[in-house]
Design a binder for these strands. Structure first.
Lengths: 346, 346
DNA sequence: CTCCTTTCGTATAACGTTGCACGAAGGGAT
DNA sequence: ATCCCTTCGTGCAACGTTATACGAAAGGAG
């Protein structure tokens, strides 16, 4: 406990002086290195506690680890990411590592690149990139320097680990559910393909393909319709408007993200359509918004916390060199049925 | 020069060699220091661009700035914080500073303290603490070491700058609005007082006091009722349940946070009460949730982005030593009326 | 043509930590 | 006693950057 005034930080040298040993000895204790007698360990630890010593991460960074992990978030507003983060936090709870997130606010490629560089420049030990918008080649370059886990994209690489969801299964659950309720005209609101991103397997691609397949499986190929208005409130609104004012409005809409589903709600309200009476609506991700009483949106749960925990675990394995081969883990989604879906015309 | 595996980073030395000058010269260019001829600046900058040089933040941290700003977030789920962050990001956009957030997930005091220490240990240049749960003395200690801005708490200090909202005004807007609609029995859902936090002026205190005053101003002192069930979905639910199943259920509820209002929605739905028919509901913060079509919650807008921008600006002033006296800025809220409030019995 | 300023570039010592290389005890085996 | 291991502690050279001190030109005033 140091008086705050203009006092200097407690350094390893102060500890060494106080414990009457060399700085190397203190460093050894700090690192659990070989060649420390119990007696010395004891003395050093006492001194550290007495002085309130905390290692200087920047200095550590110059030589090795900074014990810092960075998470790139496309948007802080997507509640699903919060679930992921809870998982990451949980996995890191009892380690020495600190977690810092960077969010560009916008999901612009340029901003994200700057953020990732900022993380690398600060010598972070590992990176978790959530659905990065930067080119795949860039990520592979980064991953060659720093252990990296990519969450969301289904493009594996020997350079980084992947944590994804079995999106195909999730889509099947939704379509089967809606068909089971009696719907046939089921439209899908998707995200536009980002040009030049080099990611072939973004979640929206998987979801889109799985949607078409599921429709085909039910003999509804001709009724399958996709609008690419985007995963955002505004995108959901525009997509729904287009669909619902078309010559043949669908009886059900499957939005590829909950956040887009909220836009569909808005469009339906404006058009005087009641949900689920006139239109059934399903989302994806089961974010906390879906669970809100006035929303009560049927959605696919991806167990975000579990994915986050897995990502953190994989990252630590890599950082601590307990594994050197890349890995892909895919978790199983399940459907949460709420009151936004019902038989058509109910 | 380097085999693919362990390619080294480009350092100031590489740039110096390539431009055929000393490292000091490169450093000078980097820092815009005095004593650099246009010719040399030109050559160095060309070399930097050619080699793709990026300064090593950890090394910088050992001597001075790290060009890193840390934001402490109590919870990543509160959409109001996202508004604040947008503002902070905007203010930092064209500076050299990178922004990293730390969120404990839980708002436990201990976790937050660890996070703040992690930021200080990483030599961050400035800290923005959003409604910190750690003891005030602790924050004052930190602020003596690192420039700090506190958002939310109305307890100013010479050690740090404060960015707050005129919460009293916001509350007046809500109560006046509800009274204007004809409500008299207006209850308030608040947050429990945190023991030992030493913050006397948390926003919920201001809001609570202002609520009582506003009720008194309308001659409704006896009808004023506060439950301290907490600013969370669950807290809103419990508080509303208590109020709505009491002997004299209120006709309107003013929730101190939008996130608590969503819990009130849930309670009302369970009790078969319609909003706004049977119960008017107002929130605080005007988060994006309030704007969702199925929610459409009347709420007080605090202009979060502006507050965030102000906080960042104040912080930069302090970091760059353009100001040394602490400052408090309070912005004016306004009411956003939506469809969750209506005359009683409408 | 001195002498005195500027101007501009370089040498160098930190900053706090790590990890290798080294050495001094102490303990067995011969 | 000699030699060789362990075990355990220390010395020291990095790591990439900043900032101070200093020297070498070049320019100006007398």
């Amino acid at each position: 406990m140091q008086p705050a005034g203009g006092s200097k930080r407690v350094t390893i040298t102060d500890v060494a002086r106080s414990a009457d040993v060399s700085t190397s000895a203190v460093s050894k204790v700090l690192r659990n290195a070989y060649g420390v007698s119990p007696a010395m360990r004891e003395r050093v630890q006492t001194a550290m506690a007495e002085l309130g010593y905390r290692p200087h991460a920047a200095a550590r960074g110059m030589r090795g680890r900074t014990y810092t992990i960075g998470v790139l978030l496309a948007s802080i507003r997507n509640a699903f990411y919060a679930d992921l983060l809870d998982g990451v936090n949980a996995a890191l709870r009892n380690t020495e590592y600190a977690l810092f997130m960077g969010s560009s606010g916008s999901s612009e490629m340029e901003d994200q690149t700057k953020l990732i560089h900022a993380m690398v420049d600060r010598q972070m030990d590992g990176l978790i990139l959530i659905a990065p918008a930067v080119p795949r080649a860039e990520v592979m370059g980064i991953a060659a320097e720093v252990p990296t886990v990519v969450i969301g994209h289904h493009d594996p690489s020997p350079a980084y680990d992947c944590v994804v969801n079995q999106d195909g299964t999730g889509v099947d659950l939704v379509v089967d559910h809606l068909v089971g309720l009696g719907h046939r005209d089921i439209a899908h609101v998707s995200h536009p393909t980002v040009r030049g991103s080099q990611w072939e397997q973004r979640p929206e691609h998987h979801v889109r393909a799985a949607y078409r397949e599921a429709m085909a499986r039910h003999g509804l190929t001709d009724l399958a319709r996709v609008v690419h208005s985007g995963y955002s409130d505004e995108g959901g609104y525009r997509g729904a408007m287009e669909l619902l004012t078309s010559a043949r409005p669908p009886t059900a809409i499957f939005a590829g993200a909950d956040v887009a589903a909220t836009g569909v709600f808005r469009a339906a309200a404006e058009l005087g359509l009641r949900i689920p009476g006139d239109l059934s609506l399903a989302g994806y991700n089961n974010t906390s918004v879906a669970a809100l009483a006035p929303v009560s949106l049927t959605s696919v749960d991806q167990a975000g916390a579990m994915m986050g925990e897995t990502a953190a675990r994989l990252l630590l394995e890599r950082i601590e060199k307990r594994r050197d081969r890349a890995v892909v883990t895919a978790s199983t989604p399940h459907l949460v049925t709420r009151s936004s879906t019902a038989p058509p015309g109910a």
